[in-house]
Structures are given as structure tokens and as C-alpha cells.
Simulated scan of single mutants.
Amino acid sequence: MKKKLEIMLPTETSKEGIAKEVIGLFKKNWKVSRNYNPKSFVTFKEKQNPFVHPVDEPAFEGHSYYLTELVYASRANDTKTLEKIEGYELGLNEIRKWNNKGGLCIYTSVLLYKLLTTPGYSSINPKQVKFHQGFYIHDVIPGSLLSMVASRKVGLHAFLTFNDAVLDVSIQQIYDEYDLMEPAFFYGKFPPNTTFYGYEETEKIINKYLYRILKDNGLTEEEWLDHHMTCAVNLVRKQADELAANLKERRNEVSEALHLPAE
């Protein structure tokens, strides 16, 4: 049975009070490297136009896109896009397993962290990427059934920051609570009246989660990363090829309408 990792609290509950509730749930269900202090969490607000160096863009965007598609396929039970590449089943099975544990955000954050920081899989400086465990708070949509019992919603969450901007590829879990295009992920920008709070975690904790993932699938870390890297690259290539084919078809249609030679 999927663990419930969301909590409804009275409007007047302080952020420290919320943090105490969250800390208790994290200690019970997941892994922490130290005793989290309710007053020491870091607040992450929306960050406009965060910078990604052009050299880092292919890895950053490709890996983020791949993870976003995995989350979407798992949540919406729609594998149409992933079926374009071989080997997608491993990632889909992993993400479904962790979703059933209530840890989808942990799985996606660990995988994306490793793809972005492990030498050979991207050129990104590992110091730019951080793994956080914490929670989000967002206002409940006015007029919804949920708004009859609470004005705010709190959810346990794991997410990354890249250059101190929130990078969250698993937010689709609550897509129905936002006006999002699908699939979607947050980088820097996120909907109004939403705030992320986190405790930066250590490489040791990340590797403990990684050990659990690898134990389930019987792969080494290198085999696991190679597989997901290949899937990410192939997915981006397939999408690019399809886009190019569609553009060519469209140009030919225009040329035909204008009585010009087709390509």
C-alpha cells in the first residue's frame, strides 16, 4: 500500500510546527543523516530565469526531460512516448515500485542527481547540484472540496537544487492541484503561493537510497547509470527526429500550397 506522505494542518500552524510533523515522518519512513532542527530548514522561493551554462544544457535538459517522461508514464499510465526507445521498462518498473512506497520523489531525485554529478554522464560541476529532503506548502485551490477543511496543503518531498534554484521533476504527482501542462517539471519557477523547504542531505544518504535501488534490480551503479543515460539520449534523439520530420512535412505542405518545389 502506498504510504501517505501528505498532511493537512490548521491554517495557523507555524512553519516550525509543520517542520516537526515532517521530521517525524521522514525519520519513520526514510533516511536522514542527522537530527533535523525545525528552525534550520532552508526556504526556497521562486527564482526567475535561473542560468544553465550552454555547455551543460544537453545533459541538464536531456536528463530532466527523460525523468519527467518517466514520472508522467507512471502517473498517467501512458507509455506512448517511452515506447519509442528500447529498455524503458526498467525505469518504469523502478519508478512504479518507489511510487508505491511513497518515495517517487526520492527515486527521481537520486537518479537525476547521479546523472548530473557523476563524471562521464555530464560536464556539470557537482557542487552546483544539491539533494534536499523536506516539504512543500501550497495554497489549496479556492472553492475546491479540499478548501472546506484546510487552506494549505503540506507534502513531504525530496528535490534537487541546481545553482540554488529548485529542480523538481516529480511535481506531476500533484498535477491536478496546479494548472500544469503535461508532462511538467519545475526549474526555478513554480506556481504562486508555493514554497519549498528543505534540509540539504549528504552523499552518504543519497548512496543509501542508491543501494536500495541497485539491490532491487541487481545492477552495478555503472550499469544502472549507463542504462538510464542511453535511454535519455535515445529519447531526446527520437523526439528531435520526429520534430524534424514534422517540420519537413509542414514545409512541403506550404510549398505545395504556394506551388513551390518540395524538399
Rank of each mutant, 00 (worst) to 15 (best):
L25T: 08
Y113P: 00
D241S: 14
D56Y: 14
N29K: 08
V129N: 03
R212F: 08
H63P: 00
E201T: 07
V52L: 13
N252M: 13
L210M: 13
I141N: 05
D216I: 09
V154S: 01
G120C: 04
V254P: 01
A73H: 04
V166N: 02
C231R: 09
Y175K: 15
L258F: 08
P10A: 11
E94S: 11
S14D: 03
I7S: 05
H53L: 15
T117D: 03
S109T: 13
V32S: 08
P50T: 02
Y178A: 02
P142S: 10
K101T: 02
Y113M: 05
A158D: 11
P54I: 08
N100G: 15
D216W: 10
I213Y: 01
L70N: 07
N35G: 03
N93P: 01
D176W: 02
S64T: 14
M229E: 06
T117Y: 00
P261Y: 11
R237G: 05
E203Q: 15
Y72A: 14
V154H: 00
S123K: 12
K15D: 13
N193S: 12
L247D: 04
L9S: 09
G188F: 05
N35Q: 12
A262T: 10
L67K: 04
L115R: 00
V42S: 03
T79A: 14
A244G: 01
L160D: 04
V129H: 03
V166Q: 05
Y187E: 02
A150L: 07
L225Q: 05
R251W: 04
G134R: 12
E69K: 10
V22E: 03
E83P: 10
W224F: 15
G155N: 05
E200R: 13
H63M: 06
E89Y: 05
E12L: 14
I171Y: 00
N193E: 08
K153M: 12
K189A: 13
T117E: 00
G17W: 08
A240R: 10
I206F: 01
I95C: 07
R96L: 15
E256H: 13
V110L: 06
F60W: 05
I174D: 06
W224A: 03
E182F: 08
T79G: 07
L156V: 09
K114R: 14
L104T: 12
K28N: 14
R250M: 10
A158T: 15
M229Y: 06
I174C: 04
D216V: 09
I18Y: 09
P192S: 12
C231A: 08
Y187L: 11
V129K: 03
